[in-house]
Nucleic acid binder design. Structure first.
Lengths: 235, 235
DNA sequence: AGCAATAGTTATGCTCCATAACTAAGGTGA
DNA sequence: TCACCTTAGTTATGGAGCATAACTATTGCT
């Protein structure tokens, strides 16, 4: 299971891959996605360009690795909120954690929440990682009482869970073992609305669109989630 | 005022600039921002590369032009909603128009609502265009009754308007001649929240993140704005 | 000890941005 | 009307970056 078992060669290989990713991250932090250049990574490692292709089949493959790590990191941040707090409080903590991570790592955030890379096809496990990052939100809404405006969405997401076993599995993994389709629909609707309501403010903030407006984006986000909690009748 | 007055040469120049933008738009539509290449535009026009630099000082300058046009276009779409409808209805129409435009022109949408171009400094009038696109939303909220969770933001935006004359001018231009700082704060808070609540769902949808989830993003957006309208007590 | 896998190399070709230095029009004013 | 100067275009050049091909040298393993 652990790749270090495979001998010293594979060991060194993993180490080099890590070094490459590290340098790529530095380039990402400096100039955004466009600044991640295999040839410059190579130069920075004292190797010559084509050597990189031993470790990553191409640039997208390297970016893929960075994306995976970013999802895991973001997921760890949101999963860090204690589960024994009241739902509303948990929601605030999780959304604040999400925002905090995005502000700390703006370029990595944009890597996963920004423009789709043209031509890039995410590997299958990316979906799982994304769902893991959103999972903790689902738990908050399973036993909520959504108000009128949410019901249409909740109906649609309930149908989605019934249709797709992987989805109901996902929901069950984060909300407990209940099979109730209505509960699943609520959890999914709450999760998706949380996602959308975080994405709006946080993405605008990280992209610099709130610059100079002199209001506190954290307060805005808090207000948005107070409202969302109200909509789901969260205590 | 009109640039066509300056003689046949300037006339031709403008025409060519338009042609260049047109081809650039086609490339944008095909492969996103990264696919807009001056050299290929030139080839497509039957000219040779460096000729482009007569018309745009560099690639960013061309992108700037596309961005300006996109803001104007989006602004026209949201401004198209009749002003004599009830506020809530207007809000739904405007948000739907925003989404529709984003879906019709996904790459142009991402050009203005997507990742910030690294190193790109927007020219001054871009701010005006962005504000114009958001202006019609402000009008909806000027005489609203925001609920508790909105008040902190409204207070901060009121202060913003008092501090920055260009902002209060902007607000007055879209809400009527009132100078009431509280009304300005409400209008701005409503506008910004509308922006954020559109940006979340629409950006996720256009970026393909809702793919395969089997719910209707339009319904999601509608629900979000029903909730927002409720928060501001809109009739 | 020797062989096969692996980490690296140089050489090459493509696309693209951008500048420099030159040429050919063509509109305009004396 | 014609000479001139502006402007649209050209070729030549260079640099960054992705990627492949073909080769070399190391090194772990049997």
């Amino acid at each position: 299971m652990s790749p270090t078992q495979t001998g010293p060669r594979a060991r060194y290989r993993e180490h080099t891959k890590e070094e490459i990713k590290q340098i790529a991250l530095a380039q990402l932090a400096e100039g955004g996605i466009g600044s991640v250049a295999l040839t410059r990574v190579a130069k920075s490692l004292g190797m010559s360009g084509p050597a990189m292709y031993r470790y990553f089949t191409n640039r997208d493959d390297l970016l893929s690795a960075l994306i995976s790590d970013a999802y895991d990191d973001l997921g760890a941040a949101t999963a860090d909120v204690p589960a024994d707090l009241p739902p509303r409080e948990r929601l605030h903590r999780m959304s604040a954690a999400y925002r905090a991570w995005a502000r700390e790592e703006p370029h990595r955030y944009l890597l996963i929440a920004g423009d789709p890379l043209p031509g890039y096809q995410a590997p299958a496990d990316t979906l799982l990682r994304a769902r893991a990052a959103l999972g903790p939100f689902l738990a908050v809404f399973a036993s909520s009482r959504p108000s009128e405006h949410v019901l249409p969405l909740a109906r649609q997401t309930a149908a989605w869970a019934l249709r797709d076993p992987a989805v109901s599995e996902w929901v069950r993994g984060y909300t407990g073992a209940s099979e109730d389709p209505e509960a699943a629909g609520r959890a999914l609707a709450g999760g998706i609305l949380s996602w959308a309501r975080m994405h709006g403010p946080v993405n605008l903030e990280v992209s610099g669109h709130f610059e100079g407006m002199g209001f506190d984006p954290g307060a805005l986000l808090h207000g948005e989630f107070e409202a969302l909690a109200d909509q789901f009748g969260l205590p």
